[in-house]
Write a protein that binds this DNA or RNA. Structure first.
Lengths: 245, 245
DNA sequence: ATTCATCTATCGAACGTTCGTCCGATATTG
DNA sequence: CAATATCGGACGAACGTTCGATAGATGAAT
């Protein structure tokens, strides 16, 4: 296939996923407003969600570039167009802002991942879909994924503990699928959790090193296929004559 | 093998590597003093190197926990036992401190990696050694590796550009070995750079998620073997009868 | 051996800036 | 006109950085 055609197909696949998965900045901010409405003193939902989206968008953009700790609320005010005082109508403190983004991001990501995986039956298909969904979702919500990864270690103890738990839950989705495949003989017998951890590391590279992959002409859909192939080869049942290693 | 025995062997391997590779905090700080002596106003080398070691050690510890931006020089003074003014005998500004640690860390890591790889001849042996050396070195210098990874994006443009270049150079070490193996038929034909990138992602997981691996009882030497197996299976030449994919 | 002058490494108070946060004033809306 | 949403200046705390003071070591002169 000509590269240009492959790129177009990859873009199509991404667009279709975005539509089906139903994730967007607006949707996520509506969820934040619904759940943390107490912290938001603005009553009008339309206004509140729109401004929350600008605030979250700007926070992710600035924090991705220079880190949340180095982002000042004056940076945030400038980029959102709101004033310093105006910002405080949407969160109680800078610390609460990072906590809200963390919690809502974790929840949505895990939801989408589970929903996508559950549309398939066989272990092979479920593993491929988990990989594909993770890459495409992290492409759509890249700043959000980077923020969750980079800022988790700077949270308070309780919040950090929960972030770690949520991340291991995502890993366990992969491990469970691998164990299913081992039970029905489609995957070889190896430490499922360790295999899941390695797959996850490769999946995270997609959004953490986005610049590099982009420079190399890699697409999200293409990367997903490469990781699927890695999983396939790593987990392929060992032929009898090769057991003597 | 009983786990306790395996753990002991793993610890032995790590100790042997530490001795052979000849890397240590003191050695690295001696290199910093030799190269950035202009910024250090302290003449006595023994004193200077000892205090540099305390400063670098404390910087890495604090930055790993809450990020370099959130580390104040008062934090650093408390942990090193030096005063605010005393710190400034060892660097000209907080920004210079992060830049020095970055540059010296990058240099030493790449040196050790190349030296270890060049002790072997065949592509298989060189790849296995590159993987082993990366895991063991990142185990010894874990705070340093984490610092390089997490704080690179907060540097100035010029410094960041160089950090990215150095990281891709490390990746190219792996890619070159894979190409050698493809040329002599010991590895299958696939995108060598993409394969190197995936391996590197898995290698980075070892130090970025150190807590998780530790909790699961994984050792550095054991992790290295797991990654070697991943590389072996992913790069194994495809048997004739399976080509019809 | 003692003294004194010099040099070195370290100290910690102080400076100007910027930070997160608050709150009375103002603009906008139904 | 009342309610709501936003504004921007002000506040104390904490920041990176500077600099004159100081304690200890060194070495030459007495």
């Amino acid at each position: 296939m000509v590269p240009a055609v492959a790129n177009r197909r990859a873009a199509d696949e991404l667009r279709a996923f975005r539509r089906d998965a139903g994730v967007s900045m607006t949707e996520l901010c509506r969820a934040i407003y619904a759940e943390h409405g107490d912290s938001v003193s603005v009553q009008n939902e339309t206004i509140a969600v729109a401004n929350l989206a600008r605030i979250v968008d700007a926070t992710l953009a600035i924090a991705n570039r220079k880190g949340f700790a180095a982002m000042s609320l004056r940076d945030l005010a400038r980029r959102t167009g709101l004033s310093l005082g105006g910002l405080y109508a949407y969160f109680q403190s800078k610390d609460e802002l990072v906590a809200v983004i963390q919690r809502q991001g974790q929840r949505q990501i895990e939801q989408v991942l589970r929903r996508q995986v559950d549309q398939h039956v066989t272990a092979r298909a479920r593993l491929d879909e988990a990989i594909r969904a993770h890459v495409l979702l992290s492409e759509i919500l890249r700043p959000w994924f980077v923020f969750l990864y980079m800022e988790a270690r700077h949270l308070g103890q309780a919040e950090r503990r929960q972030a770690v738990a949520m991340e291991e839950a995502t890993e366990e989705i992969f491990a469970a699928i691998i164990r299913e495949g081992q039970a029905d003989g489609s995957f070889r017998d190896t430490d499922a959790l360790a295999a899941a951890a390695m797959l996850k590391a490769v999946l995270q590279d997609w959004y953490l090193k986005h610049g590099k992959h982009g420079r190399r002409g890699q697409t999200a859909a293409g990367y997903a296929r490469a990781v699927q192939e890695l999983a396939t080869r790593y987990l392929a049942p060992t032929p009898m004559e090769e057991i003597t290693v």
